[in-house]
Amino acid sequence: MTLMKQICGRLALLCAVVAVVVGNLPLFLVPPKGAMLYPAVAAPAFAVAWAALSASDRRGIARVDLDKPDTPRQARPGSAWLVRIGLAVVVGLGSGAALIQVIGPDGEYGRRVAEVREAGGGRHTLPIDSVVGTARRTGTSINEQDQYAATVTVTVPFTDGPRSVTVSGVRTLDAPAPGRAAHLVYAADHPELGVHDDPYGFFDTTFPMIFIWAFTGVLTLVLAGGLATVNIGRLRIFHPRVHLPAMLILGAGGALLLPLVLGHPDGSTDILLAVPAAAAPWAAAVWMIVKLGRLHGTDAVFAPTHFDA
């Protein structure tokens, strides 16, 4: 049972790391985001199994004895550092993965883009044939170029033949005019899905991601260094008062992200879900460290793990 407990614990951490890393990639901005969802679901499943096996190991131990200082088994250097790095990634980059879910198309527009991409469509650049009405400034400026939005006509090369299509809300840098490029999303084999504006280029996706990566990356490095002073052996000893609330906090944060991973909430809703979800890993980490300090004393917790010779 001890071996199974160790395997479940390591798989839980590994799946969490995979989910967090995938969640930080700019490849999964449109739901459904199964590449992130599957390991994110597997992580708590393995964590629950680890907790259940750990609790089974400790059956018959008086509750009062569970609160007494324990003697964690000594860890191998490589094992302890892998756990430190894994925890730092899950907590630090986990916040970034939550915030990145608000980047990209959302709401009804996001749903339409997802349908086009599921049908094999993608992003295309076509010349504008004509501008319908008057273009308006959006109030956004990129590299000192004003962004405009307008209704335009374009000739789309669908599989069954080219068609002239009118597309509303097409955003361009500088005022749109015949011959200038329009970035659009459509499926060549499915004209019934329509043609939609697609302004999501570098400045709409990767550029804000760089800020998130830089911010959470620094926090991850700081946390990894801070964990060097924490007795990892104590973190790996299951205690219901320490680990169960932390697991509930992480679970609540993950639940908040489900609408963003599976659906298309509008821009005002997704940020309200992502911010508390981003705070959940840090709240769980603080809970565990503080609670362990109260149970075993700060001198026992805030000290490096001792390695076997």
Score class of each variant (00 low, 15 high):
residue 3 L to N: 10
residue 4 M to W: 15
residue 4 M to H: 12
residue 4 M to N: 10
residue 5 K to H: 08
residue 6 Q to E: 14
residue 8 C to I: 01
residue 9 G to F: 03
residue 14 L to P: 02
residue 16 A to R: 04
residue 18 V to I: 13
residue 19 A to T: 07
residue 20 V to S: 06
residue 22 V to N: 06
residue 23 G to P: 00
residue 27 L to G: 09
residue 28 F to C: 04
residue 33 K to A: 04
residue 39 P to L: 00
residue 44 P to H: 03
residue 44 P to D: 15
residue 47 A to C: 10
residue 49 A to T: 11
residue 50 W to G: 05
residue 52 A to Q: 08
residue 54 S to Q: 08
residue 55 A to M: 14
residue 56 S to L: 08
residue 57 D to L: 14
residue 59 R to T: 12
residue 60 G to Q: 05
residue 62 A to V: 02
residue 63 R to P: 04
residue 74 Q to N: 10
residue 75 A to K: 01
residue 82 L to C: 10
residue 84 R to C: 01
residue 85 I to N: 12
residue 87 L to I: 14
residue 89 V to A: 04
residue 91 V to M: 04
residue 94 G to W: 01
residue 100 I to R: 03
residue 103 I to Q: 11
residue 109 Y to S: 07
residue 109 Y to H: 15
residue 111 R to I: 01
residue 112 R to Q: 11
residue 117 R to G: 12
residue 120 G to I: 11
residue 121 G to W: 04
residue 122 G to W: 09
residue 124 H to F: 04
residue 125 T to N: 14
residue 126 L to K: 12
residue 126 L to T: 08
residue 128 I to Q: 01
residue 130 S to C: 07
residue 130 S to P: 02
residue 133 G to S: 11
residue 137 R to E: 15
residue 140 T to I: 14
residue 140 T to H: 14
residue 141 S to L: 11
residue 144 E to Q: 11
residue 145 Q to T: 14
residue 148 Y to Q: 09
residue 150 A to H: 07
residue 154 V to G: 08
residue 158 F to C: 09
residue 158 F to E: 10
residue 159 T to G: 04
residue 160 D to M: 08
residue 165 V to W: 08
residue 175 A to F: 05
residue 175 A to G: 07
residue 176 P to W: 03
residue 177 A to G: 08
residue 179 G to N: 10
residue 180 R to E: 11
residue 193 L to S: 06
residue 194 G to H: 06
residue 197 D to W: 06
residue 198 D to T: 00
residue 199 P to M: 03
residue 202 F to I: 03
residue 204 D to I: 06
residue 209 M to F: 10
residue 214 A to F: 09
residue 217 G to K: 00
residue 218 V to D: 07
residue 220 T to F: 05
residue 221 L to M: 13
residue 223 L to S: 05
residue 224 A to K: 08
residue 225 G to D: 04
residue 225 G to C: 05
residue 226 G to P: 03
residue 233 G to M: 01
residue 237 I to W: 03
residue 243 H to Q: 09
residue 244 L to N: 03
residue 246 A to G: 11
residue 254 G to R: 00
residue 258 L to T: 05
residue 260 L to E: 09
residue 261 V to N: 07
residue 273 L to T: 02
residue 274 A to R: 07
residue 274 A to H: 00
residue 275 V to A: 11
residue 276 P to I: 01
residue 282 W to T: 04
residue 285 A to W: 02
residue 287 W to N: 09
residue 293 G to F: 12
residue 306 H to S: 13
residue 308 D to Q: 10
residue 309 A to V: 05
